[in-house]
Design a protein around this nucleic acid. Structure first.
Lengths: 191, 191
DNA sequence: CTTGTTGCGGAATGTCATTCCGCCATCATG
DNA sequence: CATGATGGCGGAATGACATTCCGCAACAAG
């Protein structure tokens, strides 16, 4: 009986963890999601219906969250990118703070460990728009201070990559931690 | 004669700046790029061929950089997200540093103004993989120090939004800067 | 060995992307 | 004001492709 586990993963699709073929599909779709299933299958070594079936499964299991267009920030008049660290009194994630997600300038909101409570990724038209957002932040109860890191140049910006680095080049002077000798936390299969 | 301006914008498509209809198209495609052109046109109030034509133009002009799938980080076994501030001696953007973009864990590399030189967005399997990347960083010539902000929870994460906030709610005690009284830097048309 | 399950490939069909063409609005020009 | 050019839109036609169906093979369970 596997009935006992079914109520644990509530609204989670069965989701057998993905194999190498799924990764290749994700990688290809990450680069260009407009390809036909015929081309996609050809890239990964699969027939069109097979590729389609797997992609459909990846969508159902929410491994593929959505398909979206990547917009040039300059084209939509948002050349200014900044990361804003927010110090808050007490727990940062208040409804008042979350309200700023209504502004399309705000692209990311994270709570972080470190000397900042919340971290925002903001993309705006100019410094004045950024100032407007900061003013809005300082008007939010609990916000103590902000530190903004204005981006001068972006050298790399890409969506989540399906691949992982399996072996990191460790410098010679750094010993391998004991608990990882046999790589106990490695990906379960197919690596 | 408008010949004289043609050699200025070199490999830039004519690119008349986008109107309200383009923004609506971008917004719809941002949410879901799998919709048919018929649905897309219906959403924005356009026929299928007209919508197709405009989207084609948006792609040509690179306002739409690419179409991609958004992958669930957990599904590809990368639950750990961190922002890494890198202090460098001298100018940060060296070929050696840029080499880390080969790691699929690195999603963004920016140079920033503030007390950090470079800012990295890193998504890894576990703390050990993050350590591996940090070790790689410290092995890079010119890297002085790093500060990592490990994300505890992500409350918002979305691609570049086509919209912009036109009027920011200024707190009453903050005066309007003189040079912006007539909103000189506003979007050229259609706002 | 038998049986059920799962994933794949080939063929068929319906949907949709893509093109063509005529219409209309806008704008520049006479 | 009149007129021609331009650009963008909508309707219809066609071709490509997504999607489904079905048979087959590999594999696991009984």
């Amino acid at each position: 009986m596997k009935q006992e586990t079914d109520d644990i993963r509530q609204n989670r699709v069965p989701e057998r963890d993905l194999d190498e073929m799924d990764r290749k599909l994700l990688g290809a779709l990450c680069e260009d999601a407009t390809v036909s299933y015929a081309e996609l299958g050809e890239k990964v070594g699969l027939s069109a219906p097979a590729a389609h079936e797997r992609v459909k499964r990846l969508r159902r299991s929410q491994a593929i969250r959505s398909t979206s267009v990547l917009i040039d920030p300059v084209a939509v008049n948002k050349p200014l990118l900044a990361f804003v660290h927010v110090d808050t009194r007490g727990w940062g994630k208040t409804p008042e703070l979350m309200a700023i997600s209504a502004y399309p300038e705000v692209e990311e909101i994270h709570s972080v460990a470190g000397d900042a409570c919340m971290l925002l990724k903001v993309r705006a038209r100019d410094t004045r728009a950024l100032e407007g957002l900061l003013a809005k932040l300082y008007d939010t109860p609990g916000v103590m201070a902000t530190r903004s890191y204005v981006v001068l140049s972006t050298y790399l910006e890409r969506p989540v990559q399906p691949g992982s680095t399996t072996v990191w080049p460790m410098p010679s002077y750094m010993a391998q931690p004991i608990e990882h000798r046999r790589n106990v936390n490695a990906i379960a299969k197919a690596d």
